[in-house]
Simulated scan of single mutants.
Amino acid sequence: MKDLVRAAHIGPGLAVVVLATLLAVADGLSPGRVLLVAAAVLAGQLSVGWSNDLVDEARDRTVGRADKPLASGAVARRTVLVACALAVLATVVLSLACGWWAGVVHLGCVASAWAYNLGLKSTWWSWAPYAVSFGGLVVFVSLAASPPELPPWWLPTVGALLGVAAHLLNVLPDLDDDAATGVRGLPHRLGPRRIPPVAAVVLVAATVVLALGAGLGSPASVAGLVVAAVLVVGVLRGAGRVPFVAAVLIALTDVVLLLAAS
C-alpha cells in the first residue's frame, strides 16, 4: 500500500488538496461542502499522479529512478492501473456532486493535468496545463459554493500564474533525467540558470495582480509587494540554492495572500 501511495506523487497532490481546502474555507463553504471539495480534488490528484507514473514507466526505468515504485518493480502495473481507474471514477462522481458547473470545471482541470502527462510535458506548451488547472481550481471552489458564484477575474489569474511558477520550480530537480529520456518542455528549454529568474518574474506578476485585486492600499497587499521585492533580489543575485529558495518563498507569500484575499 505504501508503494502504491508513493506512486501517486502524494506530496504535491496533498499540497493541492490543502490549497483547495483552504480556499473553500476562505470562501465560506459549509463544513460538508469543504470535505466534498477536498475529496474531489484528492481523487483527481490521485488519478493524475498514478497516470503520470504509468505513462513514464519506461522512461523512469531507463534512467534508473529507484524513487518510482512502478519503475523499480515495488508495485505491479496492474495494481496502479486499477487504482487509477477507480480514482477517475471517484473524481467524476465527487466532482459532479459539488454541482454541475463546478464538476465540469474540475473535470476540465483534471483533464488538463492528464494532457500534460500524455504529451504536453515534452513541448513548449508544458506550462499551459498548470495554468489551466491551477486557475480552474479557484473557479471550481467558488462554483462549489451554495449558491455557486464566479470569482473575480484576478483570483483565477493569480492561480494560473502560481501554477506556471510551480511547474518551472517543480521540474528543476529532474532536468537531467528528463533530458536523458527526450522530455523537452518549457523549463528544459530555459535551462537551470534561467528557471529561477523566470519563475520569479511570474511570481512577482502574481503578487502585483493580487495587490491590484485586493486593493493596493490594503496592508496585506503592501506587505506582499515588499516581501516579493526583497526576495526577487535573492533570485537575481543569489548563488547556489538561494535563487531557488527565494523563488519558493515568493510562491508561499503569494499563496498566503491568495487565501487572505479569497
Rank of each mutant, 00 (worst) to 15 (best):
238 G>K: 06
58 A>K: 15
234 G>R: 01
63 V>S: 03
1 M>G: 15
54 L>E: 04
32 G>I: 02
115 A>D: 04
174 D>T: 15
3 D>H: 14
41 V>S: 06
62 T>L: 10
103 G>E: 04
101 W>V: 06
9 H>K: 15
138 V>E: 00
9 H>G: 07
35 L>R: 05
1 M>T: 15
54 L>H: 10
73 G>L: 13
166 A>V: 13
131 A>V: 08
241 R>A: 11
77 R>T: 12
159 G>I: 02
215 G>N: 09
165 A>D: 07
190 L>V: 01
190 L>I: 08
84 C>F: 05
205 A>T: 15
48 V>F: 06
5 V>Q: 06
50 W>Y: 04
48 V>H: 00
188 H>K: 00
85 A>S: 09
247 A>G: 13
248 V>A: 10
106 H>P: 01
88 V>P: 02
86 L>S: 01
2 K>G: 15
193 R>A: 14
225 L>Y: 04
32 G>D: 06
175 L>S: 05
188 H>I: 03
90 A>T: 00
95 S>D: 11
146 S>E: 15
201 V>D: 10
173 P>V: 10
118 L>P: 01
97 A>Q: 09
180 A>C: 04
133 S>C: 05
109 C>F: 14
25 V>Q: 13
159 G>W: 02
220 A>W: 09
63 V>Y: 10
18 V>E: 08
165 A>G: 14
2 K>H: 09
184 R>C: 01
222 V>P: 00
253 T>S: 10
115 A>E: 02
3 D>C: 02
195 I>D: 00
214 A>F: 00
44 G>I: 05
218 S>D: 11
121 K>V: 15
48 V>N: 02
259 L>M: 11
241 R>M: 05
254 D>V: 10
30 S>G: 12
195 I>Q: 01
18 V>H: 08
165 A>V: 12
120 L>V: 15
131 A>Q: 10
60 D>L: 07
246 A>M: 10
159 G>V: 03
249 L>Y: 02
258 L>D: 03
206 A>P: 04
88 V>I: 15
247 A>L: 11
124 W>G: 14
8 A>M: 05
119 G>I: 11
251 A>N: 09
161 L>T: 01
115 A>M: 12
50 W>V: 06
122 S>V: 03
143 L>N: 00
45 Q>N: 13
178 D>S: 01
129 P>T: 14
152 P>A: 09
59 R>F: 08
66 A>E: 07
143 L>F: 03
207 T>S: 15
158 V>W: 05
243 P>G: 12
69 P>V: 07
188 H>P: 00
250 I>G: 09
237 R>N: 03
160 A>Y: 07
28 G>K: 08
43 A>F: 02
6 R>F: 01
45 Q>G: 07
21 T>H: 08
213 G>S: 12
182 G>I: 09
203 L>V: 11
221 S>R: 14
60 D>C: 06
185 G>M: 06
167 H>P: 05
107 L>K: 05
